[in-house]
Every structure is written in structure tokens, then in C-alpha cells.
Amino acid sequence: MLEFGNEIKCELLGKFIIENEYDIVTVRQTIRQFAKDAGMGIVDQTRITTAVSELFRNMYNYAGGGEVLIERGEVENHNALIVTCIDKGPGIENLELAMSDGFTSGMGMGYGLPGAKRLVDRFEILSKVNEGTSVRIMKWK
């Protein structure tokens, strides 16, 4: 399992498992609620919800599911909502290619990862072939 360093002080808000399409919807709704609670407007709520939706779908489609951590932490003097997606899937061979617009290894449009990156304030990705992929995104007001 690939994990990010713990340099940010965060408070855990929830831990979820993505196993099916229904989980994608419920966890996505939970995150929308957390965003709302954090005082984000409708545009920011929609952005983070859509970004996590892309990540969850990737986990579900390519890795058969994974784990989601939702945290709140202080990042660059912002009160950030932090979502970490961890899967033990096949991993991404060429991260640079995966992060470029229009590239897809499956049936998608190829805008999932780069699109999610544009929707949030900070985007981090770790991946190792045959080990898995971890993505951490942060969004603040």
C-alpha cells in the first residue's frame, strides 16, 4: 500500500470502502456534505464532489475498488478538506501520460485524472506497477 507522508496535521472525518457503483454515490454524497459543513459554496462543493467521483471511478474500474480517507487539516493557512484514495490495483505505468488530457487506457474519455487535478487546489499521486495507486487531493475555500 502506497502512503503519503504525514507532514500535515489532520483530523480524520471518515474512512470508507469503495466496492461498487453504489459506494461511489454514497461516499461522494458524504464528501459533498463535509464540503458544505466546511463552509464551501455550491461551486466548490460540486468541484470536489466531481473530482472524487473521477478518482472513485478509477479505483472501481481499474483496481476493483479501494479505500477512502476523508480528513480535515491545515494546509498553507487554509482549512482544507483532504481526500485520500488508496487502491491495490495494477498501478499506473506512465504517470505523465496518465495525467495528460485525452489519454485513456480504458473506455473513458481520458479527462478523469487531469480533470480532477484542475478541480482541486492540491493534487498528489503515487503509483507503482503491481502495487497500487494512491491519490490525495485537497480543496479549500
Binding site: 461551486v43 460540486t46 468541484r47 466531481t50 479527462y111 480533470g115 480532477a116 484542475r118 478541480l119
Partner: peptide
């Protein structure tokens, strides 16, 4: 909705 319109543009679709 306006929020979804902005999101679609950012996604690059």
C-alpha cells in the same frame, strides 16, 4: 446548473 457548467469546463470535456 452554473456550478456544473464550471465543473465541466475544468474537467476539460
Amino acid at each position: 446548473s452554473p456550478a456544473i457548467a464550471q465543473t465541466i469546463v475544468h474537467l476539460g470535456i
